[in-house]
Design a protein around this nucleic acid. Structure first.
Lengths: 211, 211
DNA sequence: TCCTGTGAAACGGTTCACAGCC
DNA sequence: GGCTGTGAACCGTTTCACAGGA
């Protein structure tokens, strides 16, 4: 197992896992790197290289056992446990995330929702009651939360991130359009929807221009 | 100008543009690659390399002119025009996207919203009325839409994408967890929130393990 | 034979370092 | 002196090609 696994490898593992789950549902018990590549949008060689970074899970001449490989991937991705997530920001994005059924299905439990708007505080969302953003530290400690989702305005993001980290959060999914400054040991994943659209419009613009 | 601009370059250009806009608001008229790197979370050399792929916009010994460079970046990213976007899927994610003020601010106009749920069809969202997903082709043609945002279940995504492309859509922002098969000339940007969380939880898991 | 696992080669993107212009 | 623009070196990732086990 090498020193450092790249981010793109991890994203591809997620794809493979999804492919395996599909295959499992359709009754297949074995899968080749070719099939996984097909569904994961990559190449067979890439699939084998990716997997080889974590061990030898296949059988030569035969392929991979769907159930086994799935379990290995889940273990690698850290999906064998449940993650306690605190959502900060009960706006539009926050509510969409909260209601997203796949999160729960995949092992992420939104244990609390916070917002700084006094009008929202106290409101119930399903089984959780929105609490004040000022209680962030208490909430994180109470629930021994692992991850926080930052769905707050850009100006507020850095401050919230710092407080969350100080209170024990171990990772941040950041929807705010700012580069967060946090300690090395706290992974941050950024999602910026406008940026995705900009990348798309650039690509569309390029298509016209010869080449 | 080289053959192919990488995706990461484009994402960084978005960052630089944001940094420039901030600088403009704060009254600065000039910016060095160092400043842009600082705000964009990268290095000065990277900034210069990125920009050099499109031309020479700076002055040696002086830096870049904030307004000029901003305009160049907007032109490169295709933000000097407005984009007509059709949103397919009026669920949670769809509604969050629809209400996202930055989209409009950045040049993306959501000209129509579609859903396959008869209960939703006819409902008004601000100034648009939700139309039936079966009208996709008509809607795209009526509005001469450029882009579609796919916020539909994974099973429906491929079919909708094909219909949209046939009707003239030129790019797709895909929130469904499937790899879309579309013609080479149609750029697709994928956003998969569960995958982002999985990348995050993997990273968190790694932090513990020595290194 | 079939398909995996893996060194080696090829590729592409990032960093370095400095020439050149303000 | 300061800071850009850029070839060259570097480094990580992807692709190739094949040895080796089922």
């Amino acid at each position: 197992m090498p020193r450092r696994i790249s981010d793109s490898t991890i994203r591809r593992l997620s794809h493979y896992l999804r492919a395996l789950e599909e295959l499992e549902r359709s009754g297949s018990t074995t899968a080749s790197s070719d099939e996984l590549a097909e569904r994961g949008g990559t190449t067979a060689a890439q699939v084998r290289k990716d997997l080889s970074q974590f061990g030898s899970f296949g059988k030569r001449g035969l392929g991979y056992h769907v159930g086994d490989l799935g379990a290995r991937l889940r273990a690698i991705l850290g999906l064998e446990r449940r993650w306690r997530v605190v959502l900060v920001g009960a706006g539009r994005i926050g509510s969409a995330l909260f209601a997203y059924p796949n999160f729960t299905r995949r092992g992420y439990d939104c244990v609390a929702v916070l917002d700084s708007d006094p009008l929202k505080v106290g409101t119930r969302w399903g089984s959780v009651t929105i609490r004040s953003a000022s209680e962030l530290e208490d909430v994180i400690r109470e629930h021994a939360a692992d991850l926080i989702i930052l769905a707050v305005p850009a100006e507020a993001a850095q401050r919230v991130a710092e407080r969350a980290v100080a209170a024990g959060a171990r990772g941040i999914l950041n929807f705010a359009a700012v580069k967060l400054r946090v300690p090395e040991a706290i992974p941050v994943t950024n999602v910026n929807l406008v940026m995705e659209l900009e990348a798309l419009s650039f690509a569309v613009t390029q298509v016209g221009k010869g080449a």
